[in-house]
């Protein structure tokens, strides 16, 4: 798989620790929602480091690829991408990679997306792909974040959930909630899954992305609620993974 050159055309801070990087990539073969890319940074002395990041933008023929990168304080690549990179800089990337944790517009079943923290990135790619494909398939998003300030794509998600053919968006706050929020902060539990996700009788395909412990517990809750294990697709990033 060949390395390509991408030029940074825009940067946008999603939260104090996460930045969206919009790249213009030459000869980009397009991608499917949920796929990721490898990004390679090379130091002036030739040392290089590569990490994988999920694609947040929908498939397109214009070579536009957006990544949203969460800065890990002990990370090797994410601090550079979120703090040092500037508009006009070039990056090497290759991809798209991955054929499992993907949503294709021909899928006709209800879709349940469940994100933990920066695990929202590939799921946002799916939501945007649904819109750009003109799909009206029923989507739900359950988005678990520590506190309101940690939400990525906030205004876009609001507009999508307010629009016609909307995606139902439910937030789960684990540490602090907005003022007047009806539910105290806490982890997603069985009753929350039962109240906010598609009934397993509809046989939704579920996509769960987030830290390992989040995905482990959430996928188990989905199975306990009657969802078929083969309809649950997971993507996990561990404490050292620079993924996303």
């Amino acid at each position: 798989m060949m390395w390509r050159s991408g030029t940074v055309v825009a940067l946008h801070d999603e939260t104090p620790t996460a930045r969206t990087i919009a790249l213009q990539v030459s000869d980009w073969p397009s991608h499917v929602a949920g796929q990721h890319v490898d990004v390679r940074l090379t130091a002036p002395d030739g040392y290089s480091a590569v990490r994988s990041y999920s694609i947040a933008s929908p498939p397109n023929a214009e070579g536009r690829v957006e990544l949203t990168v969460e800065r890990l304080s002990d990370g090797e690549v994410s601090p550079y991408l979120t703090q040092d990179l500037g508009v006009g800089d070039r990056l090497e990337l290759r991809g798209p990679i991955g054929g499992w944790f993907v949503w294709r517009s021909r899928q006709a079943e209800p879709i349940q997306l469940i994100a933990g923290g920066s695990g929202i990135v590939p799921l946002m790619g799916m939501i945007r792909s649904r819109a750009s494909a003109g799909s009206t398939e029923p989507f739900r998003l359950l988005y678990s974040v520590r506190e309101p300030g940690a939400v990525f794509y906030r205004s876009e998600l609001q507009a999508i959930s307010d629009g016609v053919d909307s995606v139902t968006v439910t937030y789960a706050y684990t540490r602090a909630t907005p003022r007047g929020w009806p539910r105290p902060p806490g982890r997603i539990d069985a009753s929350f899954i039962a109240e906010t996700t598609w009934s397993s009788k509809l046989i939704p395909t579920c996509y769960v992305c987030g830290p390992t412990s989040f995905v482990e517990s959430t996928a188990a809750l989905l199975v306990a609620c009657g969802n078929r294990p083969d309809k649950i697709r997971t993507e996990r990033f561990g404490p050292t993974g620079d993924r996303k």
Partner: peptide, 8 residues
């Protein structure tokens, strides 16, 4: 780290 395609 843990990598799996589905539920455990």
């Amino acid at each position: 780290p843990v990598l799996s395609a589905g539920p455990t």
